[in-house]
Amino acid sequence: MIASTRANLITLITAPTIWAFHFLVCYIAASIHCAKAMTNARVFLGPEWPDVTLARIIIAGATIVAMVAIAWSSRQAWRHWGDGDAEPPYDDATLDDRQQFLGFATILLCGLSFIGVIFVALPAVFIGDCR
């Protein structure tokens, strides 16, 4: 279903789903790491903030996996988009219109998801501790 020569509902939502799971992984990694590092410290009193290197490595890995997966989905969507003789805005009742409309919509969603994944990961670049 995810890898298909014909566009379908699943190929359409693959990239946003990856984005959602990437967000979940980043959120859980950062929140558990910092919550455990600062256990029982409702108000921070130590000499320096706990570092988040482990969470940053997990987030970096998840980001690379997510970007590769979205790139793969984009390549497939690009093929769907080019697969036919229909003209924009692809609103005729033909199989080519269906295929190219879904392919184009998927590419737009892939672009949005790619940027979304980058923005979700950016705090891990700029913020080096549990502040």
């Binding site: 929140s31 558990i32 919550a35 455990k36 256990t39 029982n40």
Partner: peptide
């Protein structure tokens, strides 16, 4: 898991 994170 929330209680796990706030109790050492």
């Amino acid at each position: 898991f929330f209680y796990w994170t706030i109790h050492s």
